[in-house]
Simulated scan of single mutants.
Amino acid sequence: MKSFLLIALVLLSFSTYADSGIFYSEGGNLFPVQETSISMQKEILRFTYTPEGLVVDVFFEFNNPGETRTEIVGFVVPPCMTYEDIDFNFDVEKEMRHPYVYDFIAAQNGSILPYKVTKYESRGFSTTIDGVEERDVIYYFNVTFEPGVTKLYNHYVFKGSKYRNEDFLYRLKTGKMWANQTIEDFTMIIDASGQWFELPATLSKSIAAMAYEINGVGKISEIQGDPNKIHAYLTCGYLSLHCTNLKPDYDINLSFKSLSSKYYDFSEIYTNDFNIELPSLHWIIGSDDAKRYEGEFEGITLEAIQDMINFVYSIHGYTFGGKDFYHYFEKFSWYIPNPQLSENDIKFTVEEQAFLTALINERAKRN
């Protein structure tokens, strides 16, 4: 039985890496090959952003024009972003999972498959594919490709590590390793209400810009100075992409922006507009403790303090009373005004509330 590896997910520190390609095993080593018979007819990729972690669902549909073949299919999951983030005491084979992956499911044609989990280094595997290392973890199982269509499904929840960030990479380029070097029918869904994120403008050299669509309330904006990426903000709903005969030349890089990123965006433009430099707050603004901001607003005018308070409200679409504020915040890609929203309707995150409390306390001291 020849074995191949369908690298369908790779996660690093709340980051997602996903490849789909075929490999064969020889002497314990894995080598990438060009699959000459089985084609990838369909891939549906869904990311669901939650406070607890990233939920990933991937559906593949393959066509085997030849005889029945039983292969080894594997999903590779690196342990983390950095060596410092590795739990060396975690027994992958005993626990039957990656230390940060939960609820893993592999299924074929609607039936859940038994799988095994091991570390790459313990099996002596090696590969020349970028991003796959000896420390990686592999979920692997047998798949029988009958003549015709075979459907594979993968699901898991990644709950992050102690160095959690919000950058995601899904490797799409290896979709060209199948028979037709094409993903015949590709769909991506990003379900991330309330999130501001960055994504690639295109996935193929032959397509200048992908036809992303907002299903709900949100907006897509160009990034000044970077034609290869765009911003998307979703008040509610999801972003989708559907295309046919995709020959992927680029991977899917997603970067979900934090409060710190939004504040940096606001402060940079605010400084350019009014020639008033706001405090950087780079290492503080993600804190849930208002006391961390003590002493950070020295030299900042009362008017600027109020504008920073307005910034926190604007994140949630607050429209303010005056048209000047309304029109000013419209220039930001993360602002969508909601005329029905009142102050009491807003549910601040703990980080936003800490920042807001510190600003209100500072304003009170000035009055």
Rank of each mutant, 00 (worst) to 15 (best):
K219R: 11
D324R: 14
F104Q: 04
N89C: 05
K42W: 04
V217R: 14
S261Q: 09
L281A: 08
Y100L: 11
T150G: 09
H231E: 06
Y83Q: 12
E52F: 04
S25R: 11
V117T: 02
F348P: 03
Y212H: 09
I346F: 00
V350K: 14
Y238A: 09
I336H: 11
Y335V: 11
P32F: 07
M40W: 07
P279V: 04
P99S: 07
N253D: 12
K257A: 05
Y163K: 12
Y115R: 05
A107K: 08
Y238K: 12
E198K: 12
L254S: 02
F88P: 05
E61C: 06
Q108V: 15
E67L: 13
K159A: 04
E134K: 10
A358M: 07
S255R: 14
V92C: 05
D273T: 15
I86P: 01
Q353P: 00
D136S: 15
I105Y: 13
I22C: 11
S3N: 12
K162S: 12
T244S: 13
F4A: 15
K205P: 00
Y156D: 03
D136V: 07
D289H: 09
P99Y: 12
L241C: 01
L278E: 11
H242V: 02
G237P: 01
S260I: 00
K176N: 05
L359W: 00
G299D: 05
L113S: 03
V10L: 13
E26Y: 08
I252F: 13
F297G: 03
E166T: 14
V132W: 07
S255Y: 04
L5Q: 10
F158T: 05
V350I: 14
V132A: 08
A358R: 04
F31D: 06
F104S: 09
A106F: 10
S111C: 08
N310E: 15
A290I: 03
P200H: 05
V76Y: 02
K257I: 00
K42R: 11
E133I: 09
V92Y: 01
K94Q: 12
K119Y: 08
E303A: 05
L113H: 07
M210K: 12
R366C: 09
E362W: 06
Q181C: 00
K247T: 09
F325H: 14
D265N: 11
G218C: 07
A192Y: 00
F88V: 13
L9Y: 07
T174G: 12
Y263T: 02
I129H: 08
L356W: 01
I129C: 01
F197M: 01
N361I: 03
E146L: 12
K176P: 02
K323Y: 10
M1I: 11
F62H: 03
T144W: 08
A208F: 13
I230Y: 06
Y238C: 09
A209G: 00
D288R: 13
L172R: 01
L259N: 06
D307V: 10
Y24L: 10
P65R: 04
